[in-house]
Design a binder for these strands. Structure first.
Length: 980
RNA sequence: GCCCUGGUGGCGGAAUUGGCAGACGCACCAGACUUAAAAUCUGGGGUUCCGAUAGGAGCGUGUGGGUUCGAGUCCCACCCGGGGUACCA
């Protein structure tokens, strides 16, 4: 019964590939080009793969299979990003160790991926939770711990251009003399302050529900990214990674990468570099006396001699501004509620108000702060500062629209030229002084216009763009850009300010309080009383990995106390060889850690001497093609680039950037066809139950609906309706017995929406080749697109046609169709074949798999009608098909007479001369409108085309009685008569 | 708000980058095979108007304008969907 039997064929070839290790990457050698193609490795969740995973995986697999046939030495690995919260949450519920859950989930994922026939080199499989893997994650952390950023260090980058700033060993950190004099302990503390991995007690995002602290990036609208739980800001000692030191290089080194411009832009915006100036405003002993003018002149004189100090000191308030040209318009200052100067600037009279304001501000979570953002709030401290350019006294306020975490946590406010300052000044009746004249053509933006206010009888509108200076003393009349550089120079000369750069990017909060993450390889020194001294010791490389302690219970502590602090004393404490008592660091690393370097380990996953062999690193890196979801466009890609640069600076890897080419696949949407509003459900309840659907009342994003599902073995999965559950009339699909029309409405696939499509179901019904083909045929890889079961049916039918084109499906055995011959191919057959080879090859290079598949459909539609189907035409076609649908292709290749797998057969090439047709259709336009088509010999020149057109009867008829003004003939395209 | 995307038949999408709009597939309709169904095969179709038919004329790529012999593609303005981000001085 040799109908196209996907199940049999796929089992056979998957076994064959396994047995022959067909896809094992070869050892490095000089005579093959390497090609490293990487998928973003998955988190092995409990619910298994969904159809979104194989989208990118199929695309990379096609590229890899194609590359092998072109003689490349391909590295195509797969692994597991297996640390993470769900396994630990499962442990809390069931008591099953996360290690067990993780192991089972990995097995499911591996089975599902193998079932899809991806050509991974499984001998390189890795899991971030494997001690032999996280041993090296801990080792890399120690490299970060042992590195400081020398921002003055100059070196030549791989592009031959001079770079400034490089990570260097802490042992090479210059120690100031007064520190050295203060003794060894002071030196160690000084070093600790400069490490790329350091401990800070800045406010952090503590999420009680998840029992952990989160990175800024994991908090969305004041709620946790995972599960949308509320997040509070609390001060805690946490590990931070100094990614901000690399901000400039992270932005600059994007330039030469073959990434989508939109992703580069996303990263650049995230880094958010801005240039401007820092300026010191004199405050003297304001707050204590309420007066500031005393001592300004002395201070200015001292400054002009001594220059700009790195630390601002107590007598000044330092601000950051991108518009130093508006200094003359600064009419007040604002410091953040958390600013260290709040207390000393607050006068007795204002104390109560300020204390109260600060208290409310600290209680506000990030969410409140965003929600209340519409209304400006703040209080006056009672103190004043001196504007350095005009000597005026301006009041200092406290307001939460200034953030402690950006710039210096203090601003000079220029209400006339900043929208936020304008709004604040209007509310608190602070003077507004215009210092920039807008260009004549200026029209207020929507935001500017919205703020327009009448003050003392004059309408005032803020203006925040560039213009010409006014009311700015001798600088009046200077254009903005010009003024900016002049005033920066002046500030620099007088020691009152300096050009400065700021980033939105913050240092990376790198510790979590969970059990199921990498333990830190760090010990804290204890004094005789058992209290931490604040000094640390790193674990030696030889003693890694630091394994997890055994734990009986995984219940969160309910406090910011880390889970690992519940470990037994023999894990927590030890006495070092010098007699110092030590306590282990009990935080663990975030899930990002393992994914920051996994692509390196794939090159050399069994090495127990080093995290990677330098020779292998040099051979395989960089990743030539990296495909994954756009949700990692910022975080994962920024973090791993950062780690890579540190490893580069420390001489452990040979390239500054790990991922040469990046492509983001678009999300696959699920059907929400069967989700109806509650009232619609109520009206049709009986009919819905009569056809056997199970109503599920759901709530997603605060919207209630009823999901109508067929009973399904897996609770999250989507089950298509059957023929007899729907009625089709006039192109509309209506649920039987109801008025519910099922239209093509789609939404993100999610557990909570119960519209997840499970690949197991698809493979069971249609086979892996059909799933792969449909994933690619749906549309462009990078685009968002909806899943359709009928679409799978379509490509399945295509494979059936391919099968019958070559195989006799009425015979008992799998034998060739009688029309498959050894005859010489006809010119037309050759032309179609070579056209297909050309198009499919070009499409794979462009990752345009959907069009490649339609080309092969066209070939099949043509060849199925040929009475004689020469093997010499079918064989190359099967090779073309093989990257897309490898199982059926191997089977057909085999039946067409080859013993070996086709995995390393040379990729077919096309012969341009065979593509030429004898006659072509020539479109004839009149004034650009198509009026006729005629058959003409191929290769006519302009004159020939015109002559052929003019000789045609239909054209003659059109031309009759008209004057030809001009004739445009484009060889191979068309002829256009411009007539009157 | 700002930034990034996208908008083409009933649906998913093609269109060599300024040159025949709708490839390929789905769904739909009709026919063949069949006792029948499934499967398979064959054919059909953007739309409006004229015509009995053959055929012909007009309009069509979110909207309005522009450039051009010629625009889905380029330019200007706007509308709508999706994603990201949000007091970053």
């Amino acid at each position: 019964m040799p109908r196209y039997d996907a199940k049999r064929i796929e089992a056979r070839w998957q076994e064959f590939w396994d047995e022959h290790a067909t896809f094992k990457a070869a050892e490095p050698s000089d005579d093959t080009d390497k090609f490293y193609v990487l998928d973003m490795f998955p988190y092995p969740s409990g619910s298994g793969l969904h159809v979104g995973h194989p989208e990118g995986y199929t695309a990379t697999d096609i590229v890899c299979r194609h590359a092998r046939m072109n003689g490349k030495n391909v590295l195509h690995p797969m692994g597991w990003d297996s640390f993470g919260l769900p396994a630990e949450e499962h442990a809390v519920k069931t008591g099953t160790h996360p290690r067990e859950t993780t192991k089972q989930n990995i097995e499911t994922f591996r089975r599902q991926l193998k079932m899809l026939g991806f050509s991974y080199d499984w001998s390189r499989e890795l899991a971030t939770t494997d001690p032999e893997y996280y041993r090296w994650t801990q080792w890399i952390f120690l490299q970060l711990f042992d590195t400081w950023y020398d921002s003055a260090h100059e070196w030549t980058g791989p592009d031959g251009k001079l770079r400034t700033g490089k990570g260097r060993p802490v042992s090479e950190l210059p120690i100031p003399a007064d520190i050295t004099d203060a003794g060894e302990e002071a030196v160690r503390r000084y070093q600790d302050k400069h490490r790329l991995a350091y401990i800070s007690d800045a406010p952090v995002n503590w999420c009680p529900a998840l029992g952990t602290v989160l990175a800024n990036e994991e908090v969305i609208d004041g709620k946790s990214e995972r599960g949308s739980h509320p997040v509070e800001r609390v001060a805690l000692k946490q590990w931070m990674l100094r990614i901000t030191a690399y901000a400039d290089r992270l932005a600059y080194e994007l330039n030469d990468l073959d990434w989508p411009e939109s992703i580069k832009l996303l990263q650049r915006n995230w880094i958010g570099r801005s240039t401007g100036a820092e300026v010191d405003f004199f405050i003297g002993d304001a707050g204590a006396t309420g007066s500031v003018s005393a001592g300004v002149e002395d201070w200015k004189t001292t400054r002009s001699k001594g220059g700009w100090p790195a630390e601002p000191g107590d007598d000044v308030l330092r601000v950051y501004t991108t518009r130093p040209d508006t200094l003359y318009g600064a009419t007040y200052m604002v410091i953040a509620p958390e600013h260290p100067f709040v207390d000393r600037l607050t006068t007795e009279e204002h104390k109560a108000q300020v204390v109260e304001y600060r208290r409310t501000a600290s209680l506000k979570s990030d969410l409140d702060r965003t929600e209340l953002a519409k209304e400006k709030s703040g209080v006056f401290t009672g103190s004043y500062a001196i504007n350095p350019v005009n000597g005026e006294q301006i009041p200092i306020w406290v307001a939460d629209y200034v953030l402690i975490s950006y710039g210096t946590g203090a601003i000079m406010a220029v209400p006339a030229h900043d929208l936020r300052d304008f709004e604040f000044a209007v509310k608190f009746e602070i003077p507004i002084v215009q210092v920039v004249e807008p260009p004549a053509s200026w029209e207020p933006t929507k935001d500017e216009a919205a703020l327009t206010t009448e003050i003392n009888g004059t309408k005032m509108t803020p203006f925040s763009a560039k213009g010409t200076a006014i009311n700015s003393g001798e600088y009046s009349g200077t254009p903005t850009d010009d003024f900016k550089s002049k005033i920066t120079d002046l500030l620099n000369e007088t020691g009152l300010g300096q050009a400065a750069v700021n980033y939105k990017l913050r240092d990376w909060l790198f510790s979590r309080q969970r059990y199921w993450g990498e333990p830190f390889p760090i010990w804290h020194e204890l004094d005789d009383a058992g209290n931490p001294t604040g000094l640390m010791r790193a674990e030696t490389a030889a003693s890694l990995p630091v394994l997890h302690p055994h734990m009986e219970d995984f219940k969160p502590t309910g406090t910011p106390q880390p889970m690992l602090s519940k470990a037994t004393d023999d894990w927590l404490y030890k006495t070092d060889t010098d007699g110092t008592k030590l306590k282990r660091e009990t935080n663990s690393m975030p899930q990002w850690a393992g994914s920051c370097w996994y692509f390196l380990r794939f090159c050399d996953n069994k090495n127990s001497e080093a995290f990677i062999d330098p020779a292998l690193e040099k051979y395989w890196m960089p990743v030539d093609l990296y495909i994954g979801g756009a949700e990692h466009a910022v975080l994962h890609l920024l973090y791993s680039r950062f780690w890579h640069k540190v490893l580069f600076d420390r001489g452990h890897v040979s390239m500054v950037e790990p991922f040469q080419k990046l492509v983001n696949q678009g999300m696959i949407l699920g059907d929400t066809d069967y989700n109806v509003p509650p009232e619609v459900f109520a009206a049709n309840r009986d009919a819905i139950e009569a056809i056997g659907l199970e109503p599920l009342h759901l709530k997603v994003d605060d919207k209630e609906f009823v999901a109508l599902r067929n009973p399904s073995p897996s609770a999250d999965a989507y089950c298509p309706l059957t023929e007899d559950q729907v009625v089709k009339e006039k192109g509309k699909t209506i649920l039987k017995g109801t008025t519910i029309e099922l239209r093509g409405r789609t939404d993100k696939m999610s557990k909570s929406r119960r519209n997840v499509v499970n690949p197991d179901d698809v493979v069971r019904d249609y086979g892996a080749d059909s799933l792969r083909l449909y994933e690619m045929f749906m549309g462009p890889l990078e685009q968002v697109k909806p899943w359709s079961m009928q679409g799978v049916e379509g490509v399945y039918r295509f494979l059936g046609r391919v099968w019958r084109m070559i195989i006799d499906d009425r015979a008992e055995d799998v034998i060739l169709n009688e029309r498959v011959t050894d005859a010489e191919p006809t010119d037309e057959q050759l032309r179609i074949l070579h056209k297909t080879i050309k198009a499919v090859t070009a499409d794979i290079d462009k990752l345009s798999c959907n069009t490649a598949i339609s080309r092969m459909m066209e070939f099949t539609n043509f060849m199925s009608h040929e009475d004689s189907r020469p093997k010499s035409v079918l064989q190359p076609f099967v090779l073309l098909l093989s990257p897309f649908a490898p199982h059926i292709a191997e089977e057909l290749w085999n039946v067409l007479g080859s013993e070996k797998s086709l995995a390393y057969e040379p990729w077919p090439t096309h012969d341009e001369t065979l593509l030429v047709e004898d006659t072509v259709e020539l479109p004839i336009q009149f004034n650009g409108k198509l009026k006729a088509k005629l058959q003409v010999p191929n290769g006519l020149n302009k004159a020939g085309m015109q002559a052929a057109a003019e000789a045609d009867d239909a054209v003659k008829k059109q031309l009759a009685g008209k004057t030809v003004v001009k004739v445009i003939a484009v060889p191979g395209r068309m002829v256009n008569f411009v007539v009157r």
